[in-house]
Amino acid sequence: MNLSDKSLKQLNTKKGLKFFLTEKGMTPIKAVRIMNYENKLKKLQGELIKLQQWVEAKGEKVVIVFEGRDAAGKGGAIRRITQHLNPREFKVVALPKPSEEERGQWYFQRYINQLPREGKIVFFDRSWYNRAVVEPVNGFCTQEEYETFMNQVNDFERMITESGIRLIKFYFSISKSEQAKRFDDIKASPLKKWKFSAVDRKALELWDSYTEYKKRMFAKTNTEIAPWIIIKANRKSAARLEAIQHVLRLIPYKGTEKTF
């Protein structure tokens, strides 16, 4: 594959040369692709800063939900989105399994306690939708609890959006073979293997069950008020850029020209 003059100039920069000196197995095409991704990401992250400043100035409240298969890249996408934001004005919520006290509460109560006040953004790395897919697939809730959730979730989202919260729901979708590959990479990494949980261990075996409950979730909860945005996430870099672009398009931040 021939490289354009523009790509050749990129490779002849300090950054381009650094890839060849520090990255094993680097090729010119791969180096150009990585640099293009990083340039696009940097530009979009600059827009996210403007968006956050608008949210704060206008007293807006934003909730962004990240759902998807295990190892689909939800956490990585959140890290890229929040990388340069003011940490005082957002939080990432990744709740552990409920305590005994929480199990006795209304299911949505623990999530209500995490919703943003004015001027803040909250990112849910998994959310109340645990009860739509992960819990019933793994036997962590009863059929009655599942059905109650499915009957209430649209009303819950209608209430929070009517209260002034801007709600964005992402579902990161990957293939079975890609999930298996990522699990192998995680297990082989001394820095990442702690992420491989008992739920992950059963994910491939329960793939079809996850698919069935996912379809039910989309059929019931893909509403006009709170639609799902499906991100095809086999390529992590493309998925991250797409998610950021959706956020920038869906939140009408003003006061400066959008440059993405």
Rank of each mutant, 00 (worst) to 15 (best):
Q179L: 13
I81H: 00
K74A: 10
R240G: 04
M217F: 03
I230E: 12
I81C: 01
Q105I: 01
L3C: 13
K120G: 08
Y37C: 12
P28T: 03
F90Q: 00
T259S: 01
M1R: 13
L11M: 07
D200A: 07
I230Y: 01
F156M: 07
I78E: 03
R240V: 11
D185T: 06
K24I: 04
G68H: 03
R131N: 01
K232I: 14
T223Q: 08
K58A: 15
R249M: 02
A226L: 14
N138C: 12
G59Y: 10
F183T: 03
S173I: 02
W207I: 07
L8M: 15
K220R: 13
I230K: 12
S177N: 14
N86A: 10
E205P: 04
T223D: 01
A233F: 10
Y210T: 12
A31P: 13
I112H: 02
V63S: 10
R235A: 12
P28F: 07
M26E: 10
F124G: 00
I244Q: 09
V133S: 05
S99H: 06
V65F: 11
T148N: 04
I78S: 13
T256D: 09
T82K: 03
A203L: 05
K50V: 01
K120Q: 14
I225N: 11
N86C: 10
R182D: 09
Y107A: 01
R88W: 05
S189H: 03
N39E: 15
K236P: 00
F123Y: 10
D208P: 02
L95R: 03
K214D: 05
K202N: 06
I81E: 00
V199T: 14
A31C: 15
M26A: 15
F66S: 12
K169N: 06
Y37R: 06
S163E: 00
W207F: 09
F149Y: 15
Y107P: 00
V93L: 01
E144T: 09
M26S: 05
F218W: 03
S237V: 02
L3K: 13
Y111E: 00
A180P: 02
I186Y: 07
T27P: 04
L167T: 10
P252E: 06
F123I: 02
F124V: 00
E118L: 07
I29M: 03
L17T: 07
K9A: 14
E100L: 08
A233D: 08
I160S: 05
K97T: 08
P96V: 03
N12D: 13
R249I: 00
E89I: 00
E205L: 09
K15N: 11
K202V: 04
S177Y: 11
N113C: 11
N12T: 06
Y146C: 04
A71E: 04
K15R: 14
A180G: 11
I231W: 10
D125R: 04
Q105G: 04
T13S: 09
I49G: 09
T259Y: 09
R69L: 05
S4A: 06
Q152I: 00
T142E: 11
N36M: 06
D184H: 08
K43V: 11
F170W: 08
G119H: 15
F170Y: 15
F149E: 02
